[in-house]
């Protein structure tokens, strides 16, 4: 189990992160801060998708759908009462008269996303591999179409805008910590071992008495809950949310982060999320000064293909850096670098 010093390392890292945010908020401009916010949201998304995809080996593309459910729920709950009735004619009165503060709204958003994933997961998770990928891709499109056409509740294609700017770095950081903690706890718990067992050998896991469907659905729900929360954070950082906010491209981006970081490695997802979301921004000055747009995407896809060719298990494989893994010593496991 964890040694005392490892616990201290965790707490120390968390505090260092907090200090970093304090400094960033002091010295950096809005643009960098909003980028930092999205980096954090991507960390939540990548790590939570890793819980679903990486640990259990499910290939789900459904994250954007869960983000949309969570984001819309959260946005409707925090929407100022005085404008709500006018914008959203289809809301029942009690909902039109409710205005929640951010944290409970996020929680409810996450729970709705988890609920959605339960409804979707029970039938769909019987599918395997590619078929699951296709079915979850379908879920994204179905959710998108439904939101677009349920104008009374969602305001249709226009979406909800003018949302209060509630998301700041502290909120994002709080949820990043919760996500990392949850991911860590899960990975090194008996539930986590069940998930990894399913990924590695389904038949054997079944023989050991692991309930396959239940474990899968639970993994999907945990991931969906965090995706829903991320959707809420997203909506209140952009201050607008529309049916097209969360697309297949987003699913792709998150999957890339998980694969590049290493399926099953929390550290890997974390680093990949940070690197990728910053790289996209790094190409901007080049595009703007040369007046050619789209180079960033091309180069990133190229990098991705190269990584897939030369290091298909991702940067970290399934493992975590040795000095953070419970029950291991520094010398026992090397960090998989590049």
């Amino acid at each position: 189990m964890y040694t005392l010093s490892q616990r201290l390392v965790f707490i120390g890292l968390a505090l260092a992160g907090g200090l970093l945010i304090l400094l960033m908020r002091q010295f950096l401009n809005d643009y960098i801060l909003s980028i930092a916010g999205f980096v954090g949201i991507y960390v939540i998304l990548a790590v939570s998708l890793n819980i679903t995809n990486g640990f259990t080996g499910l290939f789900s593309l459904g994250h954007p759908a869960f983000m949309a459910i969570g984001g819309y729920t959260c946005a409707i709950l925090t929407f100022p009462v005085q404008r709500k009735g006018y914008f959203l004619s289809g809301l029942p009165d009690w909902l039109a008269g409710t205005e929640l503060s951010f944290f409970p709204a996020l929680l409810i958003g996450g729970l709705f996303a988890a609920l959605g994933s339960l409804l979707i997961g029970l039938p769909v998770l019987r599918l395997r591999g590619h078929y699951l990928a296709v079915a979850t891709l379908g879920v994204i499109i179905i959710v998108q179409v439904l939101i677009t056409n349920m104008g009374g509740i969602t305001r249709g294609p226009l979406g909800l805008n003018g949302l209060p700017t509630l998301t700041n770095l502290w909120w994002v950081y709080l949820w990043v910590l919760i996500t990392l903690y949850l991911g860590w706890k899960l990975k090194f718990s008996s539930f986590g071992r069940s998930m990894l067992a399913i990924r590695e050998d389904e038949m054997a896991a079944d023989c050991l008495g692991i309930n396959l469907l239940r474990t899968r659905v639970q993994a999907l729900m945990v991931g969906a809950f965090l995706a829903g929360v991320a959707g809420g954070l997203w909506a209140h950082l952009v201050t607008a949310i529309t049916p097209k906010s969360f697309s297949l491209i987003l699913a792709f981006t998150i999957v890339v982060m998980v694969v590049v970081g290493g399926s099953g490695s929390i550290t890997g997802s974390l680093l990949a999320a940070v690197i990728f979301s910053m790289l996209t921004e790094a190409f901007r000055p080049l595009e703007e000064s040369l007046n050619v747009y789209g180079i960033g995407e091309i180069v990133l896809s190229l990098i991705l293909i190269l990584i897939l060719i030369y290091r298909p298990i991702g940067l970290f494989g399934t493992s975590e850096p040795g000095w953070l893994s419970p029950g291991k010593r520094k010398s026992l496991s090397g960090t998989a670098g590049d």
Binding site: I35, V238, T239, E288, Y293
Partner: peptide, 16 residues
């Protein structure tokens, strides 16, 4: 010219 990639997230960050 700021490219926002048909992505509202990019629209919000590029405005900033």
């Amino acid at each position: 010219g700021y490219d926002t990639k048909t992505d509202q997230k990019a629209a919000a960050t590029q405005a900033k």
